[in-house]
Amino acid sequence: MGIQLGPLLETRKIKVEELSGQRVAIDGFNVLYQFLTSIRQADGSLLTDPKGRVTSHLSGILFRFSKLVEKGLKLCIVFDGKPPALKKNLLEQRRRRKIKAQIEWEAAIEAGDTETARTKAQQTTRLESHMINESKKLLDLLGIPWVDAPSEGEAQVASLLNQGMVDYGASQDFDTVLFGASKFIRNLTLSGRRKLPKQQKWVEVSPEIIDLEMSFQKLELNREQLIDVAILMGTDFNPGIDGVGPKRGLKLIQEFGKAEGALEKLGKEIKNLDEIRSLFLEHPFVDFNPEWKTPNVESTLSYLCDDFSFNKVRVEKALEKYVDAKPRGRQFTLGDF
C-alpha cells in the first residue's frame, strides 16, 4: 500500500482544469478504497440504504467523478485482478489488522469516543466483490469504460499509458511509477480540504503530476534502479531492509548501481529478488481500447434511486454534469508542434 517514494520524485501541482479533454486511467481498487474510507458518517459507519446495504462506493463514483467529468476529463477505470503470489503475506497482514481495528472500533463506540471510532472504522475498510460489481454496473450506466486487469491494476494503468490509450494514470500509490507509468497524477479524486488523522486540522490537497522523466534525470537513476531502491525500502512484494528509507535507499543504489551490491555491503539478503523485479518490469496486462459513451440517465436514476434509495434531486443534479460534459478539446503543449 503505497511505498514512500514521494520525496524522491519530481512533482508539480496542477489544476484539474488543465486536464480538460485528457484521458485518465484511474486505479479502481485504490479509488474505491478511498471512497469507502472517507465517505462515512461521523462515527465512522458507512453510508447505507434503508436495507442496510453499503452505498459509499456508489456515492463516490457518482458525485466525485461528476466533478472530474464536468471539467472535461475522460475517465477509464482499471480494476485489480489476481494478486501475485508474493503479495500473499501483505494481504494476510492487512486482513489481521482489519480484524483488530474492527474490535477497537466497537470498543470506541461503546466508550462514546467518536474521533477514535471514525479512525478505527476507516481501518476496517473492506472492498467486497459485490461492491465491485455494483461499481461496474454504475460505470456502465454512466458511460465510463472500465477494464479488469489480469493482476495488479497499476501495471495495467502503466500499459494503457505506454500504449497511448490514455494520457495520464491516477492513483495514490507511488508503486504506479515502478510499474512504468510515465505520467501519473496523485490526489485527483481527493482534492479540496482533507482532514489530518487524529487532529482537528485540515489541509488543502491539490492534484499533482509526477514526472518520471524529470525524476530520473534529477536522481540520475533509471527505472530498474528506482525499482531496486524501492525493493530495499520494501514493496508490496517484500518487507525491505530495516532502517532503509527513501534517502538511504537512493544513496545505496547511486553508490552500488543495483540492489545486489547494496545488500552485500549491508550484509543482508532479500529473497526472490529477481522475481520481485520482474513483477514490476514484466507484469501481465490486457489490451484495451477504452470507449466513452453517453450516460444513460433513466437507468442510472432507476438503479440509484429505486434500488439504493438515493435522493433523486441530488442524483439528477450530478447526472446533469455527466450529460453536459461536452468535449472541450484536449489541451496540447507547445512541444506537440
Partner: peptide, 10 residues
C-alpha cells in the same frame, strides 16, 4: 506569445 491549442479528439 505562443499558446498551444486545445483540439477536439472526437
Amino acid at each position: 506569445f505562443l499558446l498551444a491549442p486545445r483540439i477536439d479528439r472526437d
